[in-house]
Amino acid sequence: MRRSLFTPALAAALAVCVATALSAQAPKITPKGDPSVRNDTIYSLAVKAEDHPEEGFVYLLDDGVIRYESDGRGSSTYRQVVQILNEDDVESWSERSFSYAPEREKLTVNWIRVVKPNGEVVAAKPTIEQKSDVPAATSSPVYEQRKVLRYSLSGVAPGTLVDYSVTRERLKPYLPGDFYDSWSVTTGRTTRRSRFIVDVPASMTPK
């Protein structure tokens, strides 16, 4: 039996709800999708650019699904759906990068796509994918091998949505049974929907 803490928040309504279900489990998110979220319900949250003149982009979805075992192993899946509102932020959202420690972690990019609010696919996958090593920091006495995955997207333009999901599997925790995560529904940007799920064994009580 597992314990799940589920916190959905609809920022537009300034409402936050918390529920605990002893027998519930977090959704299994894979490159095939998230069975607990319908894309059209998220894409339909798109805003009018003229209503947000001070923002270059907004979050339609900011989503985190965390799963931990008692020994500290686990996974974290993060998804963001971002609506581009003006040209100023096109370049920054046309490039995405994710780093990880291959000796301890496995990183899976479930999907990165560019779509329109009506669901029409502009780019189903990145045009360029690169993997490279991250140089060790000379100021740190402890060396840990890290790699970075870089992606270039085509079709990003005002009015389009960038939708991506990444899963990081924690295979070897630094300390057995040790883990830490946090979540904030305040991103500094308009965020239409925020969800955070923590799934742990029923014998554990997150604090």
Rank of each mutant, 00 (worst) to 15 (best):
P126F: 04
T127E: 08
T127N: 05
T127K: 07
I128S: 07
I128R: 11
I128G: 04
E129A: 05
S132N: 11
D133G: 12
V134Q: 08
A136V: 14
A136I: 12
P141Y: 05
Y143I: 08
Y143K: 07
Y143F: 06
E144V: 12
K147G: 14
V148F: 01
L149I: 09
R150V: 09
R150H: 05
Y151T: 06
S152G: 14
S154M: 07
V156A: 05
A157Y: 04
P158Q: 06
G159E: 05
G159L: 00
T160V: 11
L161T: 08
L161M: 08
V162F: 01
V162C: 04
V162T: 04
D163G: 10
D163I: 10
D163S: 11
S165Q: 08
V166L: 06
T167S: 02
R168F: 05
E169W: 03
K172C: 00
K172E: 01
P173F: 12
P173L: 15
Y174T: 14
L175N: 07
L175W: 09
L175P: 01
P176I: 11
D178S: 13
D178M: 13
F179K: 03
D181I: 13
V185F: 03
T186C: 10
T187K: 03
T187A: 01
T187L: 08
G188K: 10
G188C: 10
R189F: 11
T191A: 13
R193D: 15
S194G: 02
R195A: 13
R195K: 14
